[in-house]
Amino acid sequence: MPRNVRHKDHPLSMRLPDADIAIIDRAATLRGRSRTDFVREAAVRAAEDVLMETIPIRMSPAGFKAFMAAVTGPITPVPEMQELFRRAAPWETGAAKKRS
């Protein structure tokens, strides 16, 4: 029975030090992925991040006005955030040492 195999359109080759390969292989194994799938996914995710950082955000004049009103208007305290900032950090109270 013939299989439909999708061929890759553009091969990509790179030379990496043994230490890099070891790290990639370990991470790929932990994710249950092949080295190729792991590297492809990581590269595409990194490329998407860069593109999202550089793509301009477009909005209508009314939308921009609403956005500016939201970010320049009076602040509204969030009680949960206020409580969080009042608490001492675990390393300030010794709680981190108790868990060890």
Results as ranks from 00 to 15, higher is better:
residue 2 P to S: 09
residue 5 V to Y: 08
residue 7 H to L: 14
residue 7 H to N: 13
residue 10 H to R: 14
residue 10 H to N: 14
residue 13 S to H: 10
residue 14 M to G: 02
residue 15 R to I: 01
residue 17 P to L: 11
residue 18 D to T: 07
residue 18 D to K: 08
residue 20 D to A: 13
residue 21 I to F: 01
residue 24 I to T: 08
residue 24 I to Y: 10
residue 26 R to V: 02
residue 26 R to D: 06
residue 28 A to G: 10
residue 28 A to K: 13
residue 30 L to A: 12
residue 31 R to C: 14
residue 32 G to N: 11
residue 32 G to A: 11
residue 32 G to K: 07
residue 34 S to Q: 03
residue 34 S to I: 00
residue 35 R to Y: 05
residue 35 R to D: 00
residue 37 D to N: 09
residue 39 V to Y: 04
residue 39 V to P: 04
residue 43 A to S: 05
residue 44 V to H: 00
residue 45 R to E: 03
residue 48 E to D: 14
residue 48 E to L: 15
residue 50 V to M: 02
residue 52 M to Q: 06
residue 53 E to I: 02
residue 56 P to G: 07
residue 56 P to W: 01
residue 57 I to Y: 03
residue 61 P to S: 13
residue 64 F to P: 04
residue 65 K to W: 02
residue 65 K to T: 07
residue 66 A to D: 12
residue 67 F to Y: 15
residue 68 M to R: 11
residue 69 A to P: 03
residue 69 A to F: 06
residue 69 A to W: 07
residue 71 V to F: 03
residue 72 T to G: 13
residue 76 T to M: 03
residue 77 P to H: 05
residue 79 P to V: 10
residue 81 M to D: 15
residue 81 M to S: 11
residue 83 E to K: 07
residue 85 F to Y: 04
residue 85 F to C: 03
residue 86 R to I: 10
residue 88 A to V: 00
residue 88 A to H: 08
residue 90 P to E: 06
residue 90 P to F: 00
residue 92 E to I: 03
residue 92 E to V: 05
residue 93 T to M: 05
residue 94 G to D: 06
residue 95 A to N: 07
residue 96 A to D: 15
residue 97 K to T: 05
residue 97 K to A: 15
residue 97 K to W: 05
residue 98 K to P: 01
